[in-house]
Design a protein around this nucleic acid. Structure first.
Length: 862
RNA sequence: GCCUGUGUGGCGGAAUUGGUAGACGCGUUGGAUUCAAAAUCCAAUGUCCUUUGGACGUGGGGGUUCGACUCCCUCCACAGGCACCA
């Protein structure tokens, strides 16, 4: 395709980018100059090496908001940095011998240039990378404050182990039983790890969700569910035959009301009592390894796994009835939730029912639907609905809520247990057995235990002389870095070789941006008070329970450590949709890049080189593995940044997915050129920029002025509502009207100038380069970026005449044109006097006439 | 299974929140310009009916209303999230 450059896109765009940078147009001081501040932030990128189209969309949205808010008189903080620690750097080191640092900073340089080429309004003076030593130093301070406060602690526990990345994963990083990056099946390992006490904040994180109104409901629901608060009863059952030091079993239940229906006790395979029993019971050992630990945690594995049990022979007495319950080890009980033990009520829990049928245990319904008379029978389906208690002694006749309260009261009185709130959320493991991260500033001493590195010895920096030939953590193999003296007793000690998870890095970067050069403390509290919370946060939905939950937790923890006063870091959150693209495969099923295929005249797709037929495989999320990717930097070169920006903003609402298409970018490019042409072609005839629009203008010019102000009104509102695609549609309408306008008089030319100027000004947030160029061509000196947003004229925006629809029985039958301020009576008369309406009503009786002035008339007739 | 969304022409989508469905763009067709092409400009473009005109039409079915893409019930499809959480 040949491209006809109406104006030199490359040189013009780069020129303005340089000017903005030289004059620091988008820089703001740490302490804002005015009270009218606004903080716009997009989730910062991982420097993978190349910008992708998703970045274009994410950062253009933030950029449009920034430029719009600046025009509205806000002092806008819009910083940019790099989430630059993490595994890919190490994998690259393994693959091609780069040092992770070299690889990372080279990528940052490349991507910084790409981001600048997009014309984004960042305050580049604030840029930092989380792998910077300065950043890690402050982060180590934060970690030690957390340690001091007991928010960071060590414990031995079963952890998710990714066998491919040789690294521990947080629960939030395990998807469908697989590592979120490597895709490898996650194993369970017993390791000593650093954890953050996010569970202490569970209630607060839950309650806080109600205070952040401008978040997508979907994200809040996902976080609520992840925290997973449920109220119930924790109680103990004494063993009839105490064994191995165990004399009772603790269980947790959310259905204490069903206790009379209990027919067994279930233990997790990892429960301490199970482990104890297994020591001298080979059959139990075999059961644990064959039936409990073998099955995967994937969706399919769970759904097909049969309920299996192992009778331990132990029994416990029922607390209220004269009978014993057998104790089973069961493969469906998780150690990680509650106490790892339950009482099974087959009638009211499907899993328990499946289990009971298999091992022939009692199934006694104790909650029956309202109105059932005694003969309620459970077949293959457990009853989990509402109802009245039955077969339950003193609970009979109560509803579920009352029965729960009664049991809890009695168990507490018997000192056998207590009401307990249980969370699904577990503490956040932040240790990673990898090199390219922030070192944990702790030294392990045999005598003193875990000793913090003293503040004057911070930062703990990574050694450069490491080797990556072997998998695993090179810090652990490093001869000198690891062996140090204990800061307390001076004896031989060992440095902590784990580094912090990268989600730790991204949990406070938004605060560091307020005060990025501070060496004494992570950030100045006053400065964060002025800028935080972030007024508008923009990013992908995939972080709904990872980054967005951690950052909310960090704000609270940082507040408790005295670093800042803000609890909720992000006031408004906007989650954008992903980018999709057509995908292609050859006859063997191999994915092909878009540039490897071409469409023939007969609508058949073939391979460019081999000419073999190609299968079009549907529009799916852009990903390297499916090869349906587009390199945005090539787009900047051929179409320019303005066209790329316009396209990603105009084709879809920002929260929905966007299908990338060559035709779409082509259309955007044409519009950029069209605006350029419309202004430059009129320039010679336009009057001086100071001329005001006279009244001596044609009707056509009056219509144009009317449209200009009407557009302005709608357009501004649309941007505020994030309806960017609708705003751009109105912009195009205005451009179409200008294109069809033939100026006659001198006054018409001033009207044309006004229309062109407004069009250029309001197009600026989307197409900053071409509009700055045209604004200058129109004779202005000030940057459009620094202009105030134009205000519409109420009178000019108002319609004088409006067209009103006239319906008969709800069906459109005619249209009438009226003065815009026509009242009800006038409107009704005009509608009934309309010729068509009269004809259609001639043989009918009018029952009722509904008149909504300015909108519609509906005649109800028979 | 549970919890969220979404469903509108050939395609992406609009409808300022109950009041003229299909704005705007892409595509297609026709025309102008051109030696020709590209670019540009103009016009048409939901479906069906024999027309001046009419009928149908926002995933299906039902309801509320003078009036429903919009609100309610129900079913279907797709997408996302969670999931042996007691």
């Amino acid at each position: 395709m040949t491209i006809d450059n109406r104006y030199n896109i490359q040189s013009t765009e780069v020129k303005w980018q340089k000017l903005w940078a030289e004059h620091k147009v988008f820089s703001v001081p740490n302490t804002p100059r005015s009270d009218k501040t606004y903080y716009v932030l997009e989730m910062f990128p991982y420097p993978s090496g190349n910008m992708h189209v998703g970045h274009v969309r994410n950062y253009t949205i933030g950029d449009v908001i920034t430029r719009f808010k600046r025009n509205q008189g806000f002092e806008v903080l819009h910083p940019m940095g790099w989430d630059s620690a993490g595994l890919p750097a190490e994998n690259a080191a393994l693959d091609n011998g780069y040092h992770p640092r070299e690889w990372t900073y080279k990528n940052i340089d490349t991507m910084r240039a790409q981001f600048k080429r997009l014309g984004l309004s960042f305050d580049w003076d604030r840029e930092f990378a989380t792998s910077d030593v300065d950043y890690q130093k402050q982060q180590q301070r934060i970690f030690l404050s957390f340690y001091d406060k007991g928010i960071a602690y060590q414990k031995e526990s079963m952890v998710n182990w990714d066998p491919v990345d040789h690294c521990v994963l947080a629960n939030e990083e395990v998807e469908d039983g697989r590592g979120w990056r490597s895709g490898a099946l996650v194993e369970q390992k017993h390791l000593k790890q650093w954890f953050l006490k996010i569970t202490d904040y569970a209630d607060d994180l839950l309650d806080g969700l109600d205070t952040i109104e401008d978040w997508p409901e979907q994200v809040k629901i996902m976080q609520r569910h992840w925290i997973g608060k449920s109220k119930g009863l924790r109680m103990s059952f004494p063993l009839n035959e105490p064994t191995g030091g165990f004399d009772k079993i603790d269980i947790f239940t959310t259905r204490p009301d069903t206790i009379f229906g209990a027919s067994f006790i279930g233990l997790s395979s990892q429960h301490p009592l199970t482990q104890c029993l297994a020591k001298d019971n080979d059959k139990l050992c075999a059961f644990i390894s064959d039936e409990c630990e073998r099955g995967g945690t994937s969706e399919v594995a769970i759904e097909t796994a049969e309920k299996q049990g192992f009778d331990t022979g132990l029994t416990v007495p029922h607390p209220f009835e004269d009978r014993d319950l057998p104790v089973y080890v069961a493969n469906f009980i998780l150690m990680g939730y509650g106490t790892g033990a339950i009482f099974g009520v087959p009638a009211h829990d499907q899993r328990d029912l499946d289990f009971a049928r298999k091992y022939d245990l009692d199934v006694t319904p104790v909650v029956v639907p309202n109105g059932t008379d005694g003969d309620f029978v459970i077949e293959d389906e457990a009853y989990t609905g509402d109802g009245i208690l039955a077969n339950s002694d003193f609970l009979n006749g109560l509803n579920i809520t009352a029965a729960k309260a009664e049991i809890i009261k009695r168990i507490e009185a018997m000192e056998r247990g207590e009401a307990k709130t249980q969370y699904r959320l577990r503490d956040w493991g932040v240790s990673r057995q990898r090199y390219w991260g922030c070192p944990i500033p702790i030294i392990h001493c045999d005598d003193c235990g875990a000793v913090p590195v003293p503040d004057d010895q911070l930062p703990v920096t990574l050694p450069d002389d490491v080797e990556f030939e072997k998998p695993g953590n090179p810090l652990e193999r490093h001869p000198t870095w690891k062996n140090v003296k204990c800061p307390q007793c001076g004896q031989k000690a060992i440095r902590e070789t784990d580094t912090l998870a990268t989600f730790f890095d991204s949990s406070w970067y938004f605060a560091r941006f307020c005060d990025p050069k501070n060496d004494d403390t992570p950030f100045d509290k006053e400065m964060t008070n002025r800028w935080l919370p972030v007024d508008q946060y923009v990013g992908g939905i995939e972080h709904a329970v990872l980054h967005l939950l951690y950052a909310r937790f960090f704000s609270r923890a940082l507040k408790d450590c005295g670093y800042m006063d803000i609890e909720e870091p992000f006031k408004r959150l906007f989650t954008l949709g992903m980018i999709t693209h057509q995908s292609y495969r050859d006859a063997q099923g191999n994915w092909l890049f878009p540039e490897q295929v071409v469409k023939e005249d007969n609508d058949q797709w073939i391979h460019v080189e081999t000419k073999d037929p190609v299968k079009v495989s549907g529009v799916i999320k852009m990903s390297k593995s499916k090869k349906n990717v587009v390199n945005p930097t090539e787009i900047f070169e051929s179409y320019g940044a303005d066209a790329a920006r316009l396209f990603v903003m105009s084709d879809s609402p920002p929260e929905k997915e966007l299908e990338w298409s060559a035709a779409g970018i082509d259309g955007a490019w044409r519009f950029v050129n069209r605006i350029h042409r419309q202004v430059t072609e009129s320039l010679e005839q336009l009057p001086d920029k100071e001329a005001s629009v006279s009244d001596d203008i044609s009707d056509g010019a009056k219509d144009l002025r009317h449209l200009v102000h009407k557009t302005l009104k709608y357009y501004t509102g649309a941007i505020e509502r994030f309806h960017f695609n609708s705003a751009i549609a109105r912009l195009r309408e205005l451009s179409n009207a200008i294109g069809g306008f033939q100026p006659q008089t001198e006054g018409d030319y001033t009207a044309l100038r006004e229309a062109l100027e407004i069009m250029v000004r309001i197009a600026n947030p989307f197409m900053p380069h071409v509009t700055e160029e045209l604004w200058q061509a129109l004779g202005h000196e000030k940057y459009l970026a620094d202009m105030h947003w134009p205000k519409y004229d109420q009178d000019l925006a108002k319609d004088d005449e409006i067209t009103i629809a006239v319906q008969i029985n709800g069906k459109l039958r005619s249209k009438i044109t009226l003065a815009a301020d026509a009242d009800k009576a006038v409107t009704e008369q005009a509608a009934l006097n309309d010729d068509r309406i009269k004809t259609l009503l001639s043989d009918k009786d009018i029952k009722r006439v509904i008149v909504v002035p300015g909108k519609i008339v509906n005649v109800v007739a028979q």
